[in-house]
């Protein structure tokens, strides 16, 4: 069963679709966050192992046999990093959007053509 992987790829596709078709800049950033959630779900599902517990060695996991009882901790650490960086980058993008709005009073991406070649 790889339902979770299918869900991740569908969210990634929906996010890309939103980024490509939407005109409103805030909607484009929302599309980016949806794609981010999709990628994170894919990464977590790669580290998942059936019938094992979280990588926390409390009383439920005997220390000697820990290697055979826990799921893969490395993708989890990477996704944790990705979430925090994602928020910082999204905040920076939104600040740029606010500055652009103050110049032209428009959120539509079609009104900003100075950099287009």
């Amino acid at each position: 069963m790889n339902l979770i992987l299918i869900l991740g790829f569908m969210l990634l596709a929906i996010g890309f679709w939103g980024m490509l078709t939407q005109k409103n800049m805030i909607k484009i950033v929302i599309g980016l966050t949806i794609a981010e959630v999709g990628v994170q779900i894919i990464m977590i599902s790669i580290g998942y192992i059936k019938e094992r517990t979280a990588p926390i060695l409390d009383s439920a996991v005997p220390l000697a046999d820990a290697v055979n009882k826990v799921v893969d901790p490395i993708p989890q650490a990477l996704v944790l990093t990705a979430i925090v960086i994602g928020v910082a980058v999204n905040a920076l993008i939104l600040s740029f959007i606010i500055r652009l709005y103050k110049e032209k009073k428009s959120l539509s991406i079609d009104d900003y053509k100075e950099m287009k070649w």
Binding site: L5, G47, I56
Partner: peptide
């Protein structure tokens, strides 16, 4: 072509072993 892992990769194995034994942390992440 995807199938879930059945065993930890080698790097993760050594992290799980060393994380509890050498570093003394309960939370491997």
């Amino acid at each position: 072509n995807f199938s879930f892992q059945t065993d930890l990769p080698d790097v993760a194995k050594s992290y799980v072993e060393k994380g509890s034994k050498d570093l003394g942390a309960m939370n491997i992440v």
